[in-house]
């Protein structure tokens, strides 16, 4: 079983999508478009009938919904887990506080328990925020414990992390914890600047150790030829 992302070329490279119940780390330069990849993951999951949750902080649900719409993607019926520490809760929104990690874990578990009969997808877009607001050891422990819960509840997870913000040892430890790692970076050659992605590792798949060019346009995320 695989969980497709709805990005043709990337799904081909991944032999259909992310492995079922995998925890995949997407790391990359700030602003490069990791969020857009996550929007595709959520939107495709909703199309497939999966229950989807998006964990975020420092933004409003409206702002994120507008970003989905900007790429012609839908997040209708997704569950929003707001880790900004605000108390106001709306329909389909669970509040928690990123500086108190157990509240984030509880919110995710609450979502999984509510939807335990369905297949699930979760995007945790606040991994960098979690690492900046808490000790890396604590974050690692919470993720390890959540990983077991994800497997139990048939949940496929995408974690987003900024590069150039954390200790390399912390990054390596989190990479090892995950079943898959996708690296997104800007590669420069003379005057040519290209955003590229590389599958650094993916459970159950022989991974092509190559970079692929990608572009983010109004129609969303597209992966093109080999870099």
């Amino acid at each position: 079983m695989v969980e497709p992302l709805g990005i043709k070329k990337l799904d081909e490279i991944l032999k259909g999508g992310f492995p079922d119940k995998a925890m995949v780390l997407v790391e990359g330069t700030p602003g490069i478009g990791k969020d857009v990849l996550a929007y595709h993951f959520i939107s495709e999951g909703l199309k497939e009938g999966d229950a989807c949750a998006y964990v975020f902080a420092g933004q409003t649900v409206e702002e994120i919904e507008n970003e989905f719409q900007a790429y012609n993607l839908s997040a209708h019926s997704a569950c929003w887990i707001n880790a900004s520490g605000e108390s106001e809760e709306r329909k389909n929104e669970i509040s928690c506080d990123v500086s108190e990690l157990f509240t984030v874990s509880s919110a995710i578990k609450e979502f999984m328990q509510k939807n335990r009969k369905k297949e699930m997808r979760v995007v945790i877009s606040i991994l960098s925020t979690m690492l900046m607001s808490n000790s890396p050891n604590e974050v690692y422990k919470q993720l390890s414990s959540l990983k077991n819960e994800f497997k139990k509840y048939k949940c496929t997870v995408m974690l987003l992390m900024e590069t150039g913000m954390h200790d390399p040892q912390v990054v390596t430890a989190i990479e090892q914890l995950c079943d898959g790692v996708i690296d997104m970076k800007v590669v420069e050659k003379d005057w040519d600047i290209q955003p590229m992605l590389k599958i650094k590792k993916m459970r159950t798949l022989p991974v092509p150790l190559k970079y692929f060019r990608f572009a983010i346009t109004a129609s969303g995320f597209t992966v093109s030829e080999e870099g």
């Binding site: 478009g33 857009v36 005057w191």
Partner: peptide, 19 residues
């Protein structure tokens, strides 16, 4: 100006584009 245009085209996040 040329470098800004080239880098702008590879950025996706509105905040980073604004920056």
């Amino acid at each position: 100006v040329i470098k800004t245009i080239r880098v702008y085209s590879v950025l996706a996040s509105p905040i980073y584009k604004k920056r």
